[in-house]
């Protein structure tokens, strides 16, 4: 299945793109998906510890299983206000 990841804030600058797509097997967890993302976008690797992850509009943890059509977002700590 195809999963799209969207980059926000300076993660977009570091990757040079707004979003990317990956083919993954059904049942893939967020953590395994992120391994693929960081593998392709190594500029983000040093920021992995502080990066936030969402599936759709909800925060996600590494154990969450992705569904066909899931939209993942990856971004740095938020700074509203």
């Amino acid at each position: 299945m195809t999963i799209t990841v969207h980059f926000w804030s300076y993660f977009r600058d570091l990757t040079g793109i707004k979003s990317d797509q990956f083919e993954v097997p059904p049942g893939t967890h967020v953590g395994a998906f992120l391994d693929l993302v960081y593998g392709r976008h190594s500029a983000l690797v040093p920021l992995r510890g502080s990066a936030l992850v969402a599936v759709g509009v909800e925060y996600a943890d590494s154990n969450q299983v992705l569904e066909p059509g899931s939209e993942v977002s990856l971004f740095p700590p938020v700074q509203g206000g």
Binding site: W8, S9, Y10, L52, A54, Y59, S73, F75, P76, V78, Q79, G80, G81
Partner: peptide, 13 residues
């Protein structure tokens, strides 16, 4: 306000 700064996805440049 504290929660906004913790979880609402807004960024400053």
């Amino acid at each position: 306000l504290d929660e906004m700064k913790r979880i609402v996805p807004i960024w400053k440049r």
